[in-house]
Amino acid sequence: MARFFTHRAAMRALAIAALATAGGAVAETITISGRFPAQNREASYLRRLAIERFSGRDGEQLANAIGGALLQAENGGGRHFTLLGGGAGPARAEGVLSGSATSDWEEHRVKLMRNRCVERAAPESGESEGKCTKNEDVPVPCTERTTSLTASLRIVRVADGAIVYTATKPRSETISWCPGESPSQSAEATIADMISGIAGETRSEIAPHGETYKIRFREDRAGLSKELGVRFRDTVKLSQRDLRAACTAWEGIDQEQPGQLSTVFNLGLCAEQRGDYPTALALYRRAAAMKRAGDIDTAIGRAQALIAGAEDEARFRRR
């Protein structure tokens, strides 16, 4: 199955990259909202889900966390999943989610470097020990704890028994503390955080989601005539006050001097912002034919994902 621009982490990385500018200058950006498909689209189509009893020490806790996360999933029309319980749940469901989760932790002694007093002055009257006169990093006997959790998940489509989603999600975290310090949290709290993280991750993998993100306009005027270069520069500034007027101005520049990279790319952003994803994709591909660049490749993937997201949203509305 084709994987599009669907990871939330990738969206965050994109936003950071879009806002980065050379020399610390403030970049002009466009704010866009769109809906993206689930990473596993087939699983997202099974909207009536039954959650079977999970096996393992932490199975019940994970099943409850995933159930809560899935009830928060939304498509453009509202809540995405209906969770079915009781003995008839699987019979009435479109998909059945099952899994297991088991955690463990172990502690052992380690030597860690800590800054400690190694020399003291003679104690004055009434003092139990003198003032510290010298500190150094020295090895100290400490405690190290490693907490681990392994979860396995799968969704079976009731109609034909096909496994449409399967995932193994291992987690591990190591913390340490020394005399005079306390552990940052208990092993139980660490496991609870891991379970919560897995539940949220599962939701992002099998449910569509909306994103609002900022993308940097391209500002390179290379190849434009002097007059059009000035108009282009002014249009970039105009985009922050009147986006529609700026997009119209870029259309005029592209008509007068077709094929300038930044103009074409920015027109793609205009199309993406107004929800015309096929036109945006065509413009990004046109830009890619002029130059291969990271922001252009990312824009192509993003437009493909938005097209898929729009297709899925239309499918959800028909139900």
Rank of each mutant, 00 (worst) to 15 (best):
A15S: 14
V138W: 12
L261R: 00
R203M: 11
A88S: 13
G223C: 06
E219Q: 11
E205M: 10
C247P: 01
G197A: 07
E129K: 09
E106K: 11
A9N: 13
Q72L: 13
R317V: 14
A310S: 13
A289I: 15
A282L: 10
I253P: 09
Y213L: 15
D297L: 05
A93D: 01
Q257W: 09
L283W: 03
P208D: 06
T143D: 12
G85V: 14
L84W: 14
S100A: 05
R12V: 14
N266Y: 07
A288G: 03
R218C: 06
L70V: 03
I198R: 00
Q185W: 13
Y284D: 00
A245F: 09
R53V: 08
G87R: 15
E129P: 01
H108P: 06
L267R: 10
S33Q: 15
R8L: 11
N115E: 14
R47M: 04
N266M: 13
C178P: 09
V230M: 09
G130M: 09
G67V: 03
Q260R: 09
A310M: 11
Q255W: 07
D295F: 10
Q257H: 06
A10P: 08
G294P: 03
G210Q: 11
T166D: 08
G210V: 15
R53E: 08
A222I: 05
V110H: 02
I206D: 02
G309R: 01
E42L: 14
S186T: 08
L70F: 01
T31Q: 08
Q255C: 02
G68D: 10
Y165E: 02
A20N: 07
R145C: 13
E173Q: 13
V158F: 02
V138F: 09
Q39C: 07
K226C: 04
I32W: 02
I195L: 03
T279C: 11
D297E: 07
F316Y: 15
A73K: 03
M11Y: 15
Q61F: 12
R12E: 14
N75E: 10
A287S: 05
R3M: 14
Y213W: 15
R48C: 02
L153R: 03
L14D: 05
R145M: 12
M11N: 04
L269M: 14
R3W: 15
A222E: 12
P37S: 06
L49D: 04
S125D: 10
R315P: 08
R157W: 00
M113E: 13
A101K: 05
D220P: 01
N64Q: 15
A2W: 15
R114D: 04
E272W: 07
E272L: 12
G95A: 06
A222Q: 06
E119D: 09
S55R: 11
V164Y: 01
R79Y: 14
